[in-house]
Amino acid sequence: MGEEAIAFEDAMKRLESIVETLGEGNLSLEDSLKMFEEGMELCTFCNKKLDEAEYKVEKLMERKGGEISVEEFKTKTEE
């Protein structure tokens, strides 16, 4: 599993737990605000992850001798 995938999933999970904890209302104001701040950062992070990068389809092949080659893959519908 890629690190980024973990990061995003963890961020979502952390965000969920923050929402829960804040909802319980047992925190000091300072901790609540800290959590809120963290939550907002997580939102920004997740949104950024959702929007960044582009759609890419590549073809992976192994050449003779074990060399790995990656090249663009075009489907008929795209051509």
């Binding site: 929007d51 960044e52 990068a53 582009e54 759609y55 890419k56 389809v57 590549e58 073809k59 992976l60 092949m61 990656v70 893959f73």
Partner: peptide, 9 residues
């Protein structure tokens, strides 16, 4: 629309 797809044909 932004996953990276790696195809091994």
């Amino acid at each position: 629309s932004h996953v990276h797809i790696l195809l091994v044909p």
